[in-house]
Design a protein around this nucleic acid. Structure first.
Length: 466
RNA sequence: GGUCUCAUCGUCUAGCGGCUAGGACGCUGCCCUCUCACGGCGGAAACAUGGGUUCGAUUCCCAUUGAGAUCACCA
């Protein structure tokens, strides 16, 4: 399936670190573009000069790259496109479809409150509609501040949404809204419309919070005689308590998940399942597979709560599938033979990359542990000591050239069977790991090597006899 | 408050008039096992409520309830 007419965009505003929701929107757009052989555009919506920061833009680009969602055009910044907006704004003004408004903020606020008090949706009165163009010009020359409002026609505004079918709003309820602070200071809704037209965006795939913006954008489109893209509003990602995931909360930033050691593919996989589901029961997808089965029309309507447990599970699945070598690289660990063994032994237990440090620390150094930890279940100190010494003897006999898991197991198991597996293997494992929970003793000893293993066993014996 | 949107296990969801309501995470029992993890096999767990339509509603319609979004000279 190839349709070069498919042109979609991710249009974040750089007012915060890249948000989880932005990532999912980017993913859906990317998937849709790629599966149709279309174009994916990155557009930076930085018309809010006060809140936009370069740092956030850099984060956006950085995280998008990390996720592997490559774009074909951009980054295009709205602040670089002021000429286009000005041109369209002037046209609207000239055609009488927009007008200058001189109402003060105080005045507006008062009206707002009054309407609210009466139980109406606040809406601009349209007072300045009557100000003629000449009059407006004079006022501005006299230094009066003005904003630009668009004339909103009465009547129903309905559009087809791929996710929500037919959605409609009542124009008369909207009121003439501000489209720009000045000719070179367009507001969001206006800039979006001009951009989408000039970039020939075919499908606007965005979060549901924009659903209510859509009629406003359509009003602008119609005034400018632009074509209307297809819309797909995807449900919001909710906090576990079902409130909207706010941009301000720390752990909604992609960079946080990255720092915690989530794999990009796992994160994407997780995100794809938030508000979307394939026809069958498959849940683990590579980006390539996702590309094949993703379907805009199967996007869910209701909001989806973010469930970290499932993310953890998915991440663990992805970690498990990796080779020790590539995992070591991600962990920033040198791929020495020793380290690779450690990574291999820890792989199955890690949910996040950040777990590694804690889980593998004992390979480097045994933490201090209480002597009683060495005693298995209801066994005794004496018995444990005997078994540990027996184990020590056997381990010493294993040649250091072939100090392997298999060899150790072969050498130790007969005695362990005789002594009772747990009675020998538990203390041995604790002796070499110092932990209540860890990988198996043979695995650990192989990694540790003969010398270190014996020294730890000796340490345990001393601990217990002391 | 107005407008818009939504509603299946705790969570993510399958379902598109007739199903013992399926899967996944989590929880839990058993197996594997020296522990943990992995893995395998089970279990508990849902159609918000009330009306219609229909021979038959989780599914279609309406109301109620609940949840969310939005109502800026932010995006």
């Amino acid at each position: 399936m190839s349709d070069p007419a498919v042109r979609v965009r991710i249009a974040p505003s750089p007012t915060g670190y890249m948000h989880i929701g932005t990532a999912r929107t980017a993913l859906f757009n990317w998937l849709f573009a790629r599966q149709n052989g279309g174009v994916f555009i990155l557009r930076i919506e930085d018309t809010d000069l006060e809140r936009s920061k370069k740092e956030y833009e850099e984060d956006l680009i950085d995280q998008l790259k990390w996720l592997g969602l490559d774009w074909d055009e951009g980054p295009i910044r709205q602040t670089d496109r002021l000429d286009s907006y000005e041109k369209c704004l002037s046209k609207l003004l000239k055609d009488g479809q927009a007008y200058y408004c001189f109402c003060s903020k105080e005045q507006l606020e008062q009206e707002r409150q009054a309407m609210l008090a009466q139980g109406f949706a606040p809406k601009y009165s349209g007072r300045c509609r009557s100000v003629s163009q000449e009059e407006a010009k004079k006022k501005m020359e006299a230094g009066e501040k003005a904003v630009i409002r668009i004339k909103v026609p009465d009547g129903k505004i309905s559009f087809k949404d791929i996710v929500r079918e037919e959605v409609s709003f009542e124009g008369s309820l909207i009121g003439d809204f501000v489209v720009a602070k000045s000719l070179r200071e367009p507001l969001y809704n206006f800039a979006v419309v001009v951009d989408d037209e000039e970039m020939k965006i075919s499908h606007v795939i965005r979060g549901e919070e924009h659903l209510a913006n859509t009629p406003r954008q359509i009003i602008i489109q119609r005034a400018l005689e632009f074509s209307q893209p297809q819309y797909a509003h995807i449900p919001l990602i909710l906090n576990p308590d079902r409130s909207k995931m706010s941009k301000r909360v720390g752990d909604t930033a992609i960079r946080e998940y990255r720092n915690q050691g989530y794999l990009p593919d796992a994160l994407l996989n997780f995100l794809s399942l938030l508000g979307w589901h394939p026809q069958d029961d498959q849940e683990i997808f590579s980006l390539k597979e996702l590309m094949k089965v993703f379907d805009l029309t199967r996007i869910q309507k209701g909001g989806a709560a973010f469930n970290v447990d499932k993310l953890d599970w998915l991440n663990a699945q992805y970690i498990k599938k990796m080779t020790a070598k590539s995992l070591a690289k991600l962990l920033g660990v040198k791929d020495t033979e020793q380290n690779l063994k450690i990574v291999e032994a820890t792989k199955e237990r890690m949910k996040k990359l950040s777990d590694f440090k804690e889980m593998a620390g004992f390979f480097v150094e045994v933490a201090d542990y209480p002597p009683e930890l060495l005693i298995w279940k209801n066994s005794t100190k004496e018995k444990t000591l005997v078994n540990l010494k027996e184990a020590e003897k056997i381990v010493s006999a294993v040649i250091s050239d072939d100090f392997s898991k298999a060899k150790l197991e072969k050498a130790l198991m007969p005695s362990a069977e005789a002594a009772g597996r747990g009675d020998m293997l538990w203390p041995l494992r604790v002796a070499v790991s110092g932990l209540e929970k860890s990988p198996g003793p043979f695995e650990i000893m192989e990694t540790l090597g003969k010398k270190e293993s014996l020294s730890r066993i000796a340490g345990a014996i001393q601990k217990l006899s002391g």
